[in-house]
Design a binder for these strands. Structure first.
Lengths: 201, 201
DNA sequence: CCAGTATTATGACGAGCGTCATAGACGGCA
DNA sequence: TGCCGTCTATGACGCTCGTCATAATACTGG
């Protein structure tokens, strides 16, 4: 994850996302963000006159765009794209990170949702937008893989939800088991939804 | 959710869980817990000499036992138990709560995981135990419904993960859509795993 | 070189936090 | 009545937080 290039403003947004996904929003201090970004403390109030709320919101938005970009990249890398294969790639990103760098970090959007939904309306909105931003390319991809149009959005939500939940469990257990289990079980089921009649109900 | 009965100690644990699942661990103050429980502030240090860490851990443990108990209750209430029906009941608990009481609260175990995994080892352990405590009766139930033994644990994890993720998305969107979508899509797929050959792979 | 804006630097403030210290109230039992 | 463990009550301490005020510095166009 490169992020030390660019201007100090972008570095601070990136650092905020990193710290938030590790410690949560409330436990992440403005001074910590500046230090982590190697940026002067005085720049915070200059670039983010809206204070912590603005910084957090921008970090969440950044995370949403990042997740959407990753979906497109996974699609481009898959030789023969299937729903299960795409989901496996999404999961693998996390198992790789956890095996290489430990279980210290989760998803910043999830952290912001847990931490700010009840208190900060604008952050809640930013989190909802981030999920939508992530959901959109996923649903589109599912449609292109043969999933019936009326189910693409719901299945995309299922994929994101299952991934987020598995991340939670994996962090708590310090074990990628939850991630691999979810990928192994849900993957084939997702593949069954492509170019097939929807399950009777 | 009854909780105002019992002794002040139990009330404080219960109140801690309530506040944590609404505001997160860091944003929940000890004074808030005492006030919410209608308990004297001085009792906190008397019943929880281990400080906030102990209180949070007990709240997380309580939540894990609560979730496990709910699984058993759902099973008892289902006339003809199927994996999808059980999952629908678990999801319905949350859609009911959100439609009746708003989207202010989430799962306390998820909140503790997001908020404390990186900083407080004992709380991370408590969260892992809570997930395990929840997973156990679920996996057992799946086995009794005809799911092959080698898949019960993974499918239980998938159910919990999908539910937790959908809760996150629903809170952010202030909409039960994610919950209903996940239940509608995952339910039939889960039913297909009972008394059937596992999907080829 | 100068003017003026953009950026950085630093100290202070008030509020809230978790924790501690200490004293008071209560209640069963001799 | 007197004692003693359990519980309650309250004020204080040290710390960190987000924010603000104010000044110094860097940079850019004339």
């Amino acid at each position: 994850m490169a992020g030390s290039g660019r201007g100090p403003r972008e570095r601070m947004v990136f650092s905020a996302a990193q710290l938030i996904r590790r410690d949560g929003v409330t436990a992440t201090g403005m001074r910590d963000v500046a230090a982590h970004a190697g940026a002067p403390r005085g720049s915070l109030q200059h670039y983010f006159p809206g204070g912590k709320e603005q910084l957090v919101n921008e970090a969440v938005e950044w995370a949403g765009r990042y997740a959407a970009r990753r979906v497109d990249r996974f699609l481009a890398e898959l030789p023969r794209p299937t729903p299960g294969g795409l989901f496996a790639a999404m999961v693998r990103q996390w198992t790789d990170e956890y095996e290489n760098s430990g279980f210290g970090t989760g998803c910043p959007v999830a952290a912001a949702t847990v931490d700010c939904t009840a208190s900060t309306e604008s952050t809640r909105t930013a989190a909802a937008d981030a999920f939508a931003c992530w959901n959109r390319p996923l649903a589109r991809a599912l449609g292109e893989m043969g999933v019936p149009a009326e189910r693409t959005e719901a299945l995309a939500t299922l994929m994101i939800g299952a991934l987020e939940g598995a991340i939670l469990i994996a962090r708590a257990e310090r074990d990628v088991r939850a991630l691999t289990s979810v990928a192994r079980e849900l993957g084939p089921l997702l593949d069954g939804c492509a170019t097939e009649a929807p399950p009777g109900r």
